[in-house]
């Protein structure tokens, strides 16, 4: 493809991304060095926002919470997604029904799904999950005000919301595994578990890599579901990085835009660090792909 054609074809998309992603991003970077409020020009204060963020214990907690959530949820998504996709891949008649049901939580808006999810657990609203647990075990779990029950509920909701996509991608990958390989493994007398470990998983490792990448990206920006699920997030320390930025930079009464921007920039650095191995591999691959 000639250079001029290439430029012409990518231009509209690049202009939109430049205007609506790069320029706002630039402003965030400028703000992160300023004492600033909406609608008024800021005042340069150097690295003060960064030192304030890095010494704020609330920020530390938000980072730890977000990374912990990301690791647990990503692991759960890959493992559960693989098991469910393997089973669905062998289904016949029931396949469309099961797939359709599995997709429901994915098409629900995250915040709406989380609201529905919270109603299952909220004693004030006669939550059925809560009711079943307390009538079976006698324990009254405080899902919204105790740290760990709240965390478990957030993990469950996040897995619930993201599992369909992970499962769908893995299923698509499983369909690409050539039959000859599976049959060859069978002929060699490889047990079912071993054929998963040594044949199927290595074959679809690109897909699993992609699912891991997408899951990490999605969980790192956890925000929506915490609005209904963790009304006490600040008090009990279940604030994600995104929620922390929202609380300090947008909620009425505290519009510390400079501090919020500094945290955004730090988050970008964190994300780049976590994604670095993936980025390096993708760069190598896409350079050779045509």
């Amino acid at each position: 493809m000639r250079k001029r054609e290439f430029a012409l074809l990518v231009a509209p998309s690049m202009i939109v991304m430049l205007g609506l992603l790069v320029i706002p991003l630039y402003r965030t970077m400028v703000w992160s060095f300023q004492q600033v409020e909406y609608g008024s020009p800021g005042e340069f204060i150097g690295l003060e926002n960064y030192t304030a963020a890095l010494t704020d214990p609330r920020f530390h907690r938000a980072v730890l919470f977000t990374i912990g959530l990301t690791l647990i949820v990503t692991a759960a998504l890959v493992v559960l997604g693989y098991i469910i996709a393997t089973l669905i891949n062998q289904l016949g008649r029931w396949r469309p029904v099961v797939l359709g049901i599995m997709l429901v939580s994915y098409v629900l808006p995250n915040v709406v799904g989380a609201a529905a999810f919270s109603w299952l657990f909220d004693t004030n609203f006669g939550g059925v999950a809560n009711y079943l647990i307390s009538s079976l075990t006698g324990a009254e779990i405080l899902w919204f005000t105790d740290v760990w029950p709240n965390r478990i509920m957030i993990i469950l909701d996040t897995v619930w919301h993201l599992l369909p996509f992970a499962m769908l991608i893995i299923l698509a990958g499983l369909q690409g595994v050539p039959n000859e390989i599976l049959e060859a493994a069978k002929i060699d007398g490889v047990s079912s578990l071993k054929s998963h470990l040594y044949v199927i998983i290595p074959t679809i490792r690109g897909v699993l890599f992609f699912v891991t990448l997408i899951s990490i990206m999605d969980v790192l920006r956890t925000f929506d579901q915490l609005i209904p699920l963790a009304p006490q997030a600040v008090e009990i320390g279940n604030e994600s990085i995104m929620l922390y930025i929202y609380n300090i930079a947008f909620r009425e009464g505290s519009e510390q835009l400079g501090l919020g921007s500094a945290i955004s920039v730090l988050t970008i650095l964190l994300i780049l660090t976590m994604l670095f191995p993936f980025i390096r591999d993708t760069f190598r691959e896409s350079k050779v792909a045509r």
Binding site: L20, L220, A249, F250, S264
Partner: peptide
Amino acid sequence: ALPRFAVVLPMY
């Protein structure tokens, strides 16, 4: 992978 707020608050 960008945190939404890094672009959405300036957009606001």
